[in-house]
């Protein structure tokens, strides 16, 4: 479970990215965070695994207060939280297998990892993660030989190899084409339902968020302005989150009417 209580975040230049955020995300949920760019989506997401430290308040993940953790304890917490990025963040000239195996570095000593000494069971975990993502045959191919969608699947496999309880996804499909976008979103859905992993994703496209997530969190200027199940989202709410009428840029393919009513 993830719990935010009275969370504020100030940047060094004085800009307040999060304003008194209170939030609770239960295990197994699929939550989409929507909002304009610069509204604080990414800051909110990264506050969960403390990639961005918060200024005030508490973020509690599975009973641990993330804002109090440092060093080794923080890294141990992070090792149970997977993270997916817009630009995949794979080492392009490394094999897919090694990229996925790198997801397990937190579980072994620095010395061993420095020399690439992973035990056999870790290698099996990595390959199984690739198998779950349906790209087992690509294991020994260099990451840059893969298409964008396949690379995001490798990144997902890396997250799965961590055996996480939560996966955070920061604009996971923003650099993919529409067809691959749907495939990757289906992967997220499958991971959520099959492996019961909580998913928190920043989404740019409203229709995708509504189609795949159970719950929508709308954020505007660092304040959570909407938090509720997909069924409660109306056109007025979306316009409030975005501060304007939705344009075709906010939507991947479905007409707005279809999202609201479907």
């Amino acid at each position: 479970m993830i719990k935010f209580t009275n969370v504020d975040k100030f940047y060094p230049n004085g800009f307040q990215a999060l304003k008194n955020v209170n939030l609770e995300i239960n295990d197994g949920e699929f939550v989409a965070i929507i909002g304009l760019s610069g509204a604080g989506k990414s800051t909110l997401l990264r506050a969960i695994n403390r990639m961005h430290p918060i200024s005030n308040g508490d973020v509690i993940v599975d009973g641990e207060n993330m804002s109090k953790l440092e060093g080794k304890e923080l890294r141990m917490m992070r090792s149970h939280i997977g993270m997916i990025f817009q630009s995949f963040n794979l080492v392009k000239r490394m094999s897919v297998f090694k990229n996925v195996l790198a997801g397990r570095v937190a579980f072994h000593s620095t010395f061993k990892t420095l020399f690439g000494l992973f035990p056999q069971e870790d290698k099996i975990i990595a390959l199984e993660a690739l198998d779950k993502m349906g790209i087992l045959e690509k294991a020994f191919v260099r990451a840059d030989q893969l298409s964008g969608g396949q690379q995001q699947r490798v990144a997902l496999a890396r997250a799965l190899a961590q055996n996480p309880s939560i996966i955070l996804a920061d604009e996971p499909v923003a650099s993919l084409d529409p067809v691959t976008t749907i495939q990757v979103m289906e992967d997220f859905k499958r991971i959520n339902t099959e492996f019961k992993i909580t998913i928190v994703a920043n989404m740019h496209h409203v229709d995708l968020a509504m189609q795949y997530a159970h719950r929508i969190i709308g954020i505007k200027d660092g304040i959570i302005v909407f938090d509720g199940p997909v069924s409660k989202v109306t056109e007025q709410i979306l316009e409030m989150i975005y501060g304007r009428k939705l344009t075709h840029e906010d939507i991947l393919e479905k007409p707005l009417g279809e999202i609201i009513n479907g």
Binding site: F97, Q120, K123, I124, L127, E128, D131, E137, A139, F140
Partner: peptide, 11 residues
Amino acid sequence: LTVAIQLKRQP
């Protein structure tokens, strides 16, 4: 193609 097969194929 199984995990066991790929494991053996490690370069």
